[in-house]
Design a protein around this nucleic acid. Sequence first.
DNA 1: CTAGCTCAGTTGGTTAGAGCAGCTGACTCT
DNA 2: AGAGTCAGCTGCTCTAACCAACTGAGCTAG
Lengths: 237, 237
Amino acid sequence: MARDLQERIKKLIIDQRLPSGSPLPTEPELMERLGVSRNSVREALKALQAMGIVEIRHGFGTYVGPMSMAPMIEGLTFRTVAGHYRGEDSLLQLLELREAVEAGLIARLAGSIPAADLADLDALVDRMDAEAAGPAGAVRAETDRAFHAALYRCLGNRLLSEVMEAFWDAFHKVRTDLVDVPQDPKVTCRQHREILDAVRSSDVLRAERAIREHFGNIRTRLNAPASTALPHPSYDR
Amino acid sequence: MARDLQERIKKLIIDQRLPSGSPLPTEPELMERLGVSRNSVREALKALQAMGIVEIRHGFGTYVGPMSMAPMIEGLTFRTVAGHYRGEDSLLQLLELREAVEAGLIARLAGSIPAADLADLDALVDRMDAEAAGPAGAVRAETDRAFHAALYRCLGNRLLSEVMEAFWDAFHKVRTDLVDVPQDPKVTCRQHREILDAVRSSDVLRAERAIREHFGNIRTRLNAPASTALPHPSYDR
DNA sequence: CTAGCTCAGTTGGTTAGAGCAGCTGACTCT
DNA sequence: AGAGTCAGCTGCTCTAACCAACTGAGCTAG
């Protein structure tokens, strides 16, 4: 029945064509319309919130959610962390997934990427160089993220962008929490520039090779420290 | 605080290295251990259930979930349906995502796929032929699904397989519910066989081309019927 | 007249207690 | 010894009350 409740609320959203951000009926209203107690309504809403379908703002109301991939990040992160602690190579599996998506996309990019995006990417690689040479001696994670996001922006596929960012986020979270990955910022910069140059020159094969090399590099570094499995590394996410 | 509760339960699972299927404390036990009311415990568990992290069995107990991608399917399906009804090309975006993943994977497959898997794939394509020539005159969806699942089985990446099946499921659900896609079973069979042959002959480029052609075919059929947007096609999922 | 504060009303958040419903396992009757 | 039954666990739903966050109208002070 709880299951059914969720479906009925979803149906409400779909049937009324409610866009993201639209206000949903208040809890008492839903109680009456669905003929169940407040408790059940709340449990259904909680579940829908966990799936990103609704957004609940305390003292304000309930709204149709942004339909982002945020809940997927959380689920994926948890799954990967749990798998890692149980000795599975879940982090590597996540990396392979990222590699597959990006390698499959890069072909569509080469040659059709707008000049404006290329300029943005140039700026990002320049920033990587600066960060590598700077006091930290490492490329900031945010810069790496921005590069990969900017790369596929021109495809005009919101779902694609969000899924890739979700994968990136989950990977990043788990990596920083669980394993101490050595960085060679010079190599990182070089590989990103190679990807960019390949895309710019419309060379599909070279672009795909560059992407795979980049991920191969991450993979190598991942295996290097033998997956530091701390005895009880308090999980705090 | 509800947020915090979920985190504490997740931390419980992680810290104790509980594998999928392990029993979790009962609701009264969680009440006491976490110092909150039963209602709050239940809402947290509902949210975790929606993310696939726990599994609740009425009259039996609460268990660590299978960590499958099932919740993602649901979220993705809903997102796609909602987007479609609002006039977005969300179904096409989902298809592009599938294409990207499969195109990015096929290269790793060509040449390294075991003979046993090839035999399974042969059998599946044969079944497709039989179904196409049979009374229904169309390839069963389950057969198509099985083909794509079997193709990447040998990569030994559970996450990958599940994500791809999740994408397939979401796509299939939305397509069958929303748009009336014309099928040419002969073409479907031919394209699957071409993919299989390309993989068997270790021809990376040909395999990738075959995959892209297959998805291109689906894409064409998707656009053909001008996305039948019914006025109020009662949503029942 | 306006800027800021205050307070009432609305909305979601939490607690408590009671009874319902599904499953298991031991006990009993045949 | 086997099948039926019942007590006990488990999660599920409901009711009712109060807490906490936010909004907006109205008031007060500048």
